[in-house]
Simulated scan of single mutants.
Amino acid sequence: MANFVLVAGARLGSWAWAEVVPYLGAAGHGVHPLTLSGLAEKQGVPAGQQTHVQDIVDEVERQGLRDVVLVGHSYSGIPVGQAAGRIGDRLARVVFVDASVPADGEPFVSAWPDGGAMVRASIAENRGFWPVAAAAHYKGHGLTDEQIARIVGGSTPHPGATLTEPAALERPLGDLPATYIKCTLGDPEPSDDVAKLLTSEHWRLFEMDTGHWPMFSQPSELAQILLAVAGE
C-alpha cells in the first residue's frame, strides 16, 4: 500500500484535502495531508521556500513513511518537486495536480508573465505576505458558490518568501517517476516547462475536465486518479 502525502496550494492547509482523504483511506492506503509552515493552523510560523521543502521531508522521515506518493497542488508543486528528490528510495511517485514545477535556481514567480512583478508588489504591500484571494478569483473553475466560500473562508495569507526564493533541485525532475494532472477547464494545455517534462519516459499525463481546485470541484474523480497512480 502507498503512503500519500498531500500538499495543497498557496493559502491553503491540510483541510483542503478533506473530501479526498476518505477515498484513499478506504482503499487501504496511508494518507497524510500536510499543512506547510505559515499557513492555516501553522499561521505565524516563519517560512521561506526551503522551509516548505523541509516540512515535507520531515513529515516523511518523522513518520518513517515508505512507498510515498508525494502530491503537490498548484504552488506546492514547487516544494514537492524538490522534496521528491531528497527522500531517496522512500519515493514511489510524485504527482503534480495542476501544479507549478520547480526549475533549479528559479523562484515560483519567475514563470508568471510579468516575471512576478505584481506578486512581489502585492507581497511588499502586505507586510511580506501574499494576501487571500477574493471570491471572484475562483469563478470559472467548476466550483459552486458554497465551495468558493469554503476556500475563501479557510484561506490564510501566504508567506511571501516562499514565492520569491529560488528552488534548489537535487535531482532533475525528468528523472523522477512523475504524474502530471492537468485541469483543462479554461486552460487546456500544459505549460511549456511541463510539456517538456512530459516527453520523459518517467512522466505521464492525466487530464481532468474541471478547474484549478479539483480537490473541491471533483474530489472523487481526483481520488480515483491518485489511486490509479498508486497502483502503477
Rank of each mutant, 00 (worst) to 15 (best):
Ala134Asp: 15
Ile148Tyr: 10
Pro172Gly: 00
Val109Trp: 03
Gln43Met: 10
Val45Cys: 06
Val109Gly: 01
Asp58Ala: 13
Gly154Cys: 05
Gly128Met: 09
Ala103Gly: 13
Pro157Tyr: 12
Pro159Lys: 00
Asp104Thr: 05
Ala99His: 04
Lys139His: 14
Ile56Trp: 05
Val94Ala: 09
Gly64Asp: 05
Lys139Tyr: 13
Ala149Lys: 14
Thr162Asp: 10
Gly116Lys: 02
Ala117Arg: 15
Trp130Asn: 12
Gly140Thr: 00
Val57Glu: 09
Ala83Phe: 08
Glu170Ile: 11
Ser100Ile: 06
Val95Glu: 04
Leu173Ile: 00
Val109Ile: 12
Ala133Pro: 10
Gly153Ser: 02
Ile78Pro: 04
Asp55Ile: 09
Asp58Met: 05
Leu65Met: 06
Leu176Asn: 00
His141Pro: 08
Val101Cys: 01
Glu146Ala: 15
Glu59Gln: 14
Gly85Phe: 08
His158Pro: 01
Gly160Ala: 03
Pro79Cys: 08
Glu125Pro: 10
Glu59Gly: 07
Ala135Leu: 01
Arg150Thr: 15
Asn126Ile: 03
Ile78His: 06
Val57Phe: 00
Gln43Ala: 13
Ala124Met: 12
Val94Lys: 00
Ala84Glu: 08
Lys139Asn: 14
Ala134Arg: 14
Gly77Asp: 09
Gly72Trp: 04
Pro102Ser: 04
Ala83Val: 04
Leu143Thr: 09
Val94Ile: 00
Gly88Arg: 05
Ile148Arg: 06
Glu59Lys: 15
Ala92Gln: 13
Ile87Asn: 13
Thr144Phe: 07
Ser100Asp: 11
Val57Trp: 03
His141Cys: 04
Asp58Thr: 14
Pro113Val: 02
Leu65Asp: 07
Leu163Lys: 07
Gln82Asp: 12
Arg171Gly: 12
Gly140Val: 10
Pro172Asp: 08
Asp89Phe: 04
Pro79Ile: 02
Gly128Ala: 04
Glu106Ser: 13
Gly44Tyr: 07
Val109His: 01
Gly115Phe: 07
Ile151Asn: 06
Pro159Met: 12
Val152Gly: 08
Asp145Cys: 10
Ala161Ser: 14
Glu59Trp: 11
